[in-house]
């Protein structure tokens, strides 16, 4: 049993009624690793990611976070776990009723009981890091998609998470904004952040990923380091998928 695993997924299953979305998923995320999850649309990538922080309740199997069975968590333990597992959504999900700075301050103040000044300082540092310090006092609706997503990343970072989950963070963006978001993510990876990234950005996966997991039909059909998986996919469905993507 690898004791150094941050997240360990064992025989994970998820059904929506008759629809078996995740049939059997196994995997290990170690600290500092960047895992990229790829696969055709509807293959269950989002569902898998959302099971990790229990936004969806798995129907079977086990997820261990730092060795603890997440499914037996109480409500309080669950929020503590989520506090340490940040998430970045495809549609940003910034709070439109709060300014950018307030978006960043909310969780540290409410969850970690950080003093307002400290939270603000921290928020500004993070905004600088994603290049948006001057937008601190505006409301999210006045930002571009790329800017919103960078704020969302900063918001997740404000909680000092152990791991960040990304669900197609760039696929809702205009093409010219994809780069700025990927650049921030790349920097994070270089700083040693543990990340699980569902993405269609093969370039990013190849360059930044430590491992790429190919998902289809409710299984992870192939797991490998990026170059091997992209250049010499073993699984037939993976070959098919990759040739289509790269062929484009």
């Amino acid at each position: 049993m690898p004791s150094d695993a941050l997240i360990e997924v064992k025989k994970l299953q998820k059904n929506y009624g008759e629809n078996e979305v995740l049939k059997q998923i196994d995997g290990v995320v170690k600290p500092g690793q960047v895992i990229c999850v790829i696969g055709p649309s509807g293959s269950g990538k989002s569902t898998f990611l959302r099971c990790l922080n229990l936004l969806e309740k798995p129907t079977g199997g086990e997820i261990l976070f730092e060795g603890h069975d997440t499914m037996s968590f109480s409500e309080a333990e669950l929020t503590t776990m989520r506090e340490r597992m940040g998430m970045v959504f495809q549609s940003f999900n910034l709070f439109p009723n709060l300014t950018v700075l307030e978006n960043l301050k909310l969780a540290p103040m409410r969850v970690k009981h950080m003093a307002e000044d400290d939270a603000a300082k921290k928020a500004l540092t993070l905004l600088k890091r994603v290049g948006l310090a001057e937008k601190a006092d505006v409301y999210p609706s006045s930002l571009s998609g790329g800017q919103q997503q960078r704020v969302a990343i900063a918001r997740a970072l404000a909680m000092d998470p152990e791991v960040l989950l990304f669900d197609e963070p760039t696929s809702a963006l205009d093409p010219e904004m994809v780069g700025e978001v990927l650049a921030v993510m790349k920097e994070l990876a270089e700083d040693g952040m543990t990340m699980v990234v569902v993405t269609h950005e093969m370039g990013f996966a190849r360059e930044v990923g430590d491992e790429v997991w190919f998902m289809a039909d409710g299984y992870i059909l192939e797991k490998n380091e990026p170059n091997a998986l992209f250049n010499h996919p073993q699984n037939e469905r993976a070959q098919d998928f990759i040739s289509k993507i790269i062929g484009n």
Partner: peptide, 14 residues
């Protein structure tokens, strides 16, 4: 939107 609650939950807010 449901995403709002999810984003909040993912930050650890009760």
């Amino acid at each position: 939107a449901k995403g709002q609650t999810e984003a909040s939950a993912s930050l650890g807010l009760n």
